[in-house]
C-alpha cells in the first residue's frame, strides 16, 4: 500500500476500500459544485493510490458538515478521509490559508475564524 494511503487510513480510522462508488456522498455534498474532484471520486483515487491524489483541491472546500459521513452506507465517511488528507499537509506545518490576509476577519462571527483556522492551518 502506498504511504499516503496508509497514513490517511491511520489518521482517519476509516477504510476507503469499503467504498462501492454509490456516489451518495457527492449527491449530498453542499460544496461539490466547487470541487475539482467530487467526493466519491476522491475516495476512488485513494483506493488506487496514484500520483493524482497530490493534485486534488477538493479537500479544502469540504467544511466538515457531516452530510456525507452520516449517510455513507459503507461507513467510509468521505468527510473523515478528507480531514486526514488535509492533516497530511497541515501537520508538516504548511498553512493553506494566511489568516493575516483575510479582509473581513474582524467582522464575521468568531466561530467562523476558529473553524477556518482549525481546518486550514497547522
Amino acid at each position: 500500500m502506498k504511504e499516503i494511503v496508509r497514513k490517511i487510513i491511520s489518521i482517519s480510522g476509516r477504510n476507503p476500500f469499503l467504498c462501492y462508488q454509490c456516489g451518495l456522498c457527492s449527491a449530498v455534498c453542499p460544496v461539490v459544485e466547487y470541487m475539482d474532484t467530487p467526493p466519491h471520486k476522491v475516495v476512488k483515487l485513494i483506493q488506487l493510490g496514484g500520483e493524482e491524489l497530490k493534485r486534488i483541491k477538493s479537500i479544502w472546500y469540504c467544511i466538515s458538515c457531516m452530510a456525507c459521513v452520516d449517510r455513507c452506507p459503507r461507513n467510509v465517511g468521505p468527510g473523515i478521509l478528507f480531514e486526514a488528507f488535509r492533516l497530511l499537509t497541515l501537520r508538516r506545518g504548511i498553512d493553506k490559508v494566511d489568516l493575516g490576509t483575510l479582509e473581513n476577519i474582524d467582522k464575521v462571527p468568531t466561530i467562523a475564524v476558529v473553524a477556518l483556522a482549525r481546518k486550514t492551518t497547522g
Binding site: I63, A115, T120
Partner: peptide, 19 residues
C-alpha cells in the same frame, strides 16, 4: 438542513451567497 457555507464566508464568499 442544508449547509449555509459556514466558514467559507472568510475565503469564498461566493459559495456562501450561492448556498
Amino acid at each position: 438542513t442544508e449547509c449555509c457555507g459556514s466558514y467559507h464566508i472568510l475565503t469564498n464568499r461566493n459559495i456562501v451567497v450561492d448556498r
